[in-house]
Amino acid sequence: MIEIENVRKSFGSLEVLKGIDLTVQKGEVVTIIGGSGSGKSTLLTCINGLEPIDSGRILVDGTEVHAKGTDLNKLRRKIGIVFQQFNAFPHLTVLENVTLAQRKVLKRSRAEAEAEAVKQLNHVGLGDKLKVYPGRLSGGQQQRMAIARALAMSPDYMLFDEVTSALDPQLVGEVLDTLRMLAGEGMTMICVTHEMKFAREVSDRVAFFHKGVMAEIAPPEQLFGNPKDTELQKFLSATH
């Protein structure tokens, strides 16, 4: 379970998160939508401790992420994150990209790590690209590799930050299919996305962020069908 309690966060004088409360249950899929600069990415990077917070707290399975004694490196193994920019490691083959952290962080043996990598890469449809360097892959393939890389760590939670925004339109579908599949398998996920159709389909709940505030959160039928917040109404009419 991820519990976010009254989290505030500023960059200098700019307050980016203004008291966010959100609880994500095991197996739940929550998508976050909202305008540019509303703080969506910042929230995700706070959840896995890449960014510090100013006040409030975030608990992952009861462990407080930003507490002094917390072993972040250990905590992050539970939480996979995939970014808009795929962040493939260019100096490693696809297989090595997916085995590196398994071997060095989880201390899995090479054989074990490779078996897991092959499984995950097959899962995302890259089973035939093991020896290829990421530079030779399309954006969509690189992004699916990044997803496999995160999944190979056997995380309990997955965070996705606009994983299709940097892709050409014809490549968006293949990545969204991968996410749909994961959601179907019961993975606990928080997805930041601009794909409304996707959000409507896979989410248990959809959250709308506006200027650092979670202005509305509801099941998709309700949030898209009967939006209450006026900013949300504006946002939805602008995106259609």
């Binding site: 896995n48 890449l50 490196n73 250990k74 992050r76 193994r77 939480i79 996979g80 994150i81 970014f83 920019q85 962040n87 490691f89 260019p90 100096h91 590196l100 952290a101 060095k104 962080v105 989880l106 990044a146 890389r149 995160a150 760590m153």
Partner: peptide
């Protein structure tokens, strides 16, 4: 080498030294 490489490493559970050693240094 973009910062995001280190960030990607850190989010896979590498410490600062590990991310440097395995991801930044070879590049």
């Amino acid at each position: 080498i973009p910062d995001t490489q280190t960030r990607a490493g850190r989010s896979l559970g590498f410490g600062a030294a590990g991310a440097f050693r395995y991801i930044v240094l070879p590049q």
